[in-house]
Amino acid sequence: MKQTIGCYHAHYSNIDYIQQAMEPFDVELVHFVDPGLDRRKSDAAFPVETAQARIQDTLVWVESAHVDAILVTCTFFTAHMPDSDALPVSIPVVRIDDPLFEAICAEGRPPLLVFTNPATVDGTVRRLIQYAEGRGMELPVRTHLLEGTFDILMRGDKETYLSKVTEGLMNLAAEHPDHQLWAAQLSMAGAAGRAEEAAGVRIGDPLSELSRYMEKGLQLKPRPRTS
């Protein structure tokens, strides 16, 4: 039976990435986007508790739309969600950085996580360290913020954003050959692919690991062939 996955995004630009990643599987995707929360999260008068309450309320709303599982594609959202055993929903919830964390822990070289959104850095790193510790690992995590790039995406100029992020990733790959680079946000996946091809080095990203992780975790079936 076809499964229905509710996809909870901070920005509309993430929809295409998820559509592509889930194309091989017999699933229906229902998209829920909250750009207002993404814009307000850095406001001084917008407490983190309000953001957390909004995220939890939306998870409950998505579950009520008759979906079988939820995929949360924003790292800010995942960083401010409760632990899995405290989530306010009864269906499986996949966080976009779970496949990324699994791949980082399996990699031999020390990780360098690259971000464009400053509001996601601390929460993502905290979750990664907790994830690694749960597997008996201690990771020497380094981070780098490509400053000013996320504002470009928020203005809707996706192509300039991809160009700037691609350039930044290529420069970092050259400067840190002893580290494994990871584009830590879904919005960076396209740039990671471009930089990887141009620089000739692997640059990990959440999307490249997502399909395998979702197929295994949700036992997804292949999309039927059409004659």
Rank of each mutant, 00 (worst) to 15 (best):
L146Q: 04
H66F: 11
F32W: 10
R225M: 14
D68L: 07
S163W: 06
A198L: 15
A192Y: 02
S90K: 11
A132T: 08
L139M: 08
T143F: 05
V72A: 00
R212I: 08
F77M: 10
V67M: 09
L113R: 04
E147L: 07
M81W: 11
V30L: 13
V141H: 05
Y161D: 02
S187A: 08
P35K: 01
L145M: 01
M22Q: 02
E28N: 10
R212M: 10
D34Y: 04
E175K: 05
N171G: 14
V67Y: 04
L169Y: 05
E167S: 11
P92K: 00
P92Y: 06
K216E: 09
H144A: 14
P224W: 01
E133D: 12
M214Y: 00
Q56E: 15
E138D: 11
L100S: 10
F101Y: 12
W182D: 02
P24T: 04
M170N: 01
L145S: 04
L37D: 10
A132P: 03
P177M: 05
L145R: 00
Y12M: 10
L169F: 02
I203V: 09
I18K: 03
T4D: 01
R142D: 10
G217M: 07
M137I: 10
D83E: 15
T73I: 11
P99V: 07
G123P: 00
D16L: 13
R225S: 14
F32N: 12
R202M: 10
A191P: 14
Q3E: 00
G193A: 05
V114D: 05
E159T: 11
K41N: 00
L220Y: 09
D38C: 08
A192V: 03
L145F: 07
I70N: 03
Q52Y: 03
R194K: 13
P224H: 04
C105L: 10
Y161K: 01
E28A: 11
I152T: 15
S90H: 12
G134D: 11
D57V: 00
L146S: 06
T120P: 00
D34P: 07
L181G: 06
I70L: 02
D34N: 14
E63A: 13
T78C: 07
D178L: 09
L71C: 05
V67E: 01
D26M: 02
V165L: 07
Q130E: 14
A191N: 04
D151F: 06
K164R: 15
L218Y: 03
E215G: 01
A198F: 12
A195E: 06
R155H: 11
H179C: 14
Y131N: 01
E209I: 09
D85V: 11
P140G: 04
A119V: 14
I203A: 03
D97N: 08
H80R: 10
A79D: 07
Q20V: 12
D97L: 02
D98F: 00
H144C: 14
S42T: 14
T124E: 01
P222G: 06
L146D: 01
D38G: 08
E23N: 04
L186I: 06
S227G: 14
F25A: 05
T166R: 12
L169D: 05
D157H: 05
M154C: 01
A86L: 12
L207H: 03
H179W: 08
E133R: 10
R135D: 00
L37E: 12
R40A: 14
Y8W: 06
A189I: 06
G123C: 11
S163I: 03
D97K: 02
N117D: 15
A86Y: 10
D16P: 06
R155V: 13
F150H: 12
E102M: 00
R223N: 02
